[in-house]
């Protein structure tokens, strides 16, 4: 990947559910581009297609048509260009959810180390990487704690560390601040911005949260299956 290449580029992406007269076009030609180290917002009313777009970018559902490039690699061009989408998700896409969705039977370190381990990295190296990520998220002191022993904020930070574990070019964050109050929500955004710069990772944040929308420099507003790029306030966090 060169610095001139966008982390993610989407061209005319469509998604149709069903067929015939009952078919629903959830995405009607979405265009989007996010550069490495950039944090962009994806906003829109319920039913506008945010989740469909997120699932398409996460290689969880297959778009109907269009083109999707990830760090210079064409992933989708009217059909998947990679056979092993699971490996694609594991190695090149990070996920942060509204709820942390950590694996409850693993401790904080292993929750993060699991991803490199799944990629074939040796246990010791994976755990060292995990500790590095937990340190970056300032939760290294809870490395051995079980999920149930972590606070909500700590869990969310561990989940962000997990998303970063394989140093993917893109992180998809689905309402990561929804359950948090204003200050904590801004703290999460502060972390995401810092990590994006530090690891040169593009982060797409799907949100409804008015508290964090002013922090984006760029926003994609999705309405009726189409994206509209808007300039954000880019308020410092």
């Amino acid at each position: 990947m060169t610095h001139t290449e966008p982390a993610i580029r989407i061209e005319n992406l469509t998604k149709r559910y069903g067929s015939g007269p009952t078919a629903v076009d959830a995405l009607k030609g979405v265009d989007m581009q996010v550069d490495p180290g950039e944090v962009v917002g994806l906003i829109g009313p319920s039913g506008s297609g945010k989740s469909t777009l997120l699932k398409s970018l996460g290689a969880v559902i297959e778009p109907t048509s269009g083109r999707f490039t990830l760090a210079g690699e064409v992933i989708y061009d009217d059909g998947w260009k990679r056979r092993d989408l699971r490996a694609l998700r594991r190695d090149r896409i990070g996920f942060v959810f509204q709820a942390p969705y950590l694996i409850p039977f693993l401790d904080a370190t292993d929750n993060v180390a699991l991803l490199p381990m799944l990629a074939g990295v040796k246990n010791a190296v994976a755990r060292a990487t995990a500790l590095e990520m937990l340190t970056a998220l300032d939760v290294q002191h809870r490395a051995q704690a079980r999920v149930s022993e972590l606070s909500g904020g700590e869990q969310q930070r561990v989940s962000i560390a997990r998303a970063l574990a394989n140093k993917p070019p893109i992180i998809l964050a689905d309402e990561p601040t929804a359950p948090l109050d204003g200050e904590r929500a801004l703290a999460v955004m502060r972390i995401l911005n810092r990590l994006a710069r530090e690891f040169q990772t593009a982060i797409i944040v799907v949100t409804h949260d008015d508290k964090i929308i002013p922090t984006f420099k760029r926003i994609y507003n999705i309405r009726d299956g189409k994206t509209y790029e808007e300039a954000g306030e880019g308020r410092a966090v």
Binding site: G58, V60, R86, A87, L88, R89, R90, D91, F95, Y101, I103, P104, F105, L114, L115, L118, A119, R162
Partner: peptide
């Protein structure tokens, strides 16, 4: 948990 495991590439 299994959905998350699958999503993250297990």
């Amino acid at each position: 948990e299994i959905a998350v495991l699958k999503l993250i590439g297990t």
